[in-house]
Amino acid sequence: MIESLRSKSKELLENGTVSLVIGYAEGSKKGKTKPFFAYSSEDCDKLTFSPQCVNNLTIYLTRKFTFMKKGKVAIVAKGCDVKTINVLIQENQLKRDDVIILGMSCDGVVGKDIVHDGEQLPDENKSIKCLTCDVKTPIDYDHLFGEEIKSEALEPMTGGIYDAVKEVKAMSWSDRWKYWMDHFERCIKCYACKKVCPLCYCDVCITEKSRPQWIETSAHARGNYAWNIKRAMDLAGRCTFCGECDRSCPAEIPLNIINQELAMTVYDSFENYTAGYQTDVTPPFVSFKEEDKEDFIK
């Protein structure tokens, strides 16, 4: 799998199809890999793939990283990462022809702070997103690496994170409020959540707008609440559950729960819409229908 990934990457660079291959290399510490940019055949020998490849590399396709792009690029993408590419295409941030997808068959990556050696990854060491994964073989790719893995038929919005969301939703209003305020209290406003999110691609973020200051820079209860709610709302109907914000949060705020709570709401309210599976439909929050079921919008 790794050998064929390397040789295909070399071929694409050597024949000039792409100028850059975005992939993974061994990390600096045990059980870690890191994002890696291969510009030459020599670089390609460092490319790797394993359950430690947790990063969603599609962040490097967004406008935050335009400085490093020179023409067409190839990207190593797991099934979950390809869903992000689909949303970027759907939102006109990327053209399908701009990118060569090196799709990886993936049976799960490691969960946060888990150090795992070897190929076989038991469920308890997997990231929670992998427990309900239905894209073990990516839904779109130019080249596929590894054996095709059939995803089991899953009950939508059930198991894994969805059960965790339901637990929080079952709380009383006051308990839920306390649950979230206790978590948001720990926020240190490092903004790792937005910086690792491939769908947070605005040139200027609302957090940087100071006239007026929409989101207070203070890490106090109001400032933290405003930021966390705002970030989650912006991802409603867009988040593909790559889980990068949750993984990167140094304050251990369960961002997967709030993001997927919104995803479930969108699923229920917009004809079972789930982000990342189609590029040719209008996302629910930018569509308008005269027959909208809500009166306030008419």
């Binding site: 935050k64 990283f65 790792a192 140094p250």
Partner: peptide, 17 residues
């Protein structure tokens, strides 16, 4: 600098800790 830090996403994690 480019070789090492092109991948940096620009969060404030390192500075805040």
């Amino acid at each position: 600098w480019d070789d090492l830090a092109a991948k940096c996403v620009g969060c404030g994690g390192c500075t805040f800790v």
